[in-house]
């Protein structure tokens, strides 16, 4: 029974998605505000984590590609985590559904592995819209040029590779991730388009 409950919960959340993001689930009782903008969309997201296992939230999306505005209900479920003394590995299921029409929804899987020096992640997100169904794939690799201690400014030099099945072309570009305390910002640029991701956690 336990495993069925677990499976049903995961599938439910799987149906509720969007791009991979840094730390998609917070600590128990933690809340997160995010802003993201790139060539395809910009969005504002708030999510709350009742436990460290999942988060639920709402996202206002300005879809630049399809010239559309809507609010997504979103959720992410931590399917598996493996901690060691020097690393953490996570597998997440993520999903979202538009409040505008139930024909717009997305679901996918996101994984990451990191040490204090190295970060890597992948995501595969399927997006269903009234206009078109497509898949977004993303990989990230990052290296910390120095090892910061707690409360220091932490810096990551990152490389992102993205492809969606609309353009069917890989975009690879560098970006920088900085975080300190409850604040994180990622900034990158590709073909004069800014890719910015800002997070406040509390």
């Amino acid at each position: 029974m336990g495993i069925y409950k677990h499976l049903i919960f995961a599938i439910t959340l799987f149906m509720l998605s969007d791009l991979a993001e840094s730390r998609p689930v917070s600590w128990a009782g933690g809340s997160t505000i995010m802003y993201r903008t790139n060539s395809m969309m910009s969005s504002y997201l708030f999510h709350y984590s009742p436990t460290y296992k999942y988060s639920i939230g709402a996202e206002y999306v300005n879809d630049k590609y399809f010239n559309n505005h809507f609010i997504n209900l979103r959720s992410t479920y931590l399917l598996d985590r493996h901690n060691t003394k020097i690393s953490q590995r996570n597998i997440y299921l993520t999903g979202g559904i538009s409040t505008k029409t139930n024909q717009d929804f997305s679901y996918g899987i996101h994984g990451d592995w990191e040490t204090r020096r190295i970060f890597s992640s992948f995501s595969v997100i399927n997006k269903h819209t009234k206009e078109k169904n497509y898949t977004e794939n993303e990989f990230q690799l990052g290296l910390a040029p120095y090892l910061g201690e707690y409360n220091d400014i932490h810096t990551w030099v990152m490389l992102k590779a993205k492809k969606n099945t609309i353009n069917n072309d890989w975009e690879i570009y560098p970006f920088i991730k900085l975080f300190q305390g409850d604040y994180l910002i990622e900034v990158g640029s590709k073909n004069s388009h800014w890719d910015i991701h800002f997070i406040i956690r509390y």
Binding site: W27, Y52, N83, T84, R116, F179
Partner: peptide, 18 residues
């Protein structure tokens, strides 16, 4: 306390708050 999985500032932030 010895901790596994505390690899970044964000990871530890919640521990302190709790």
């Amino acid at each position: 306390v010895d901790v596994n999985g505390m690899v970044c500032d964000f990871c530890a932030r919640g521990i302190e708050k709790v």
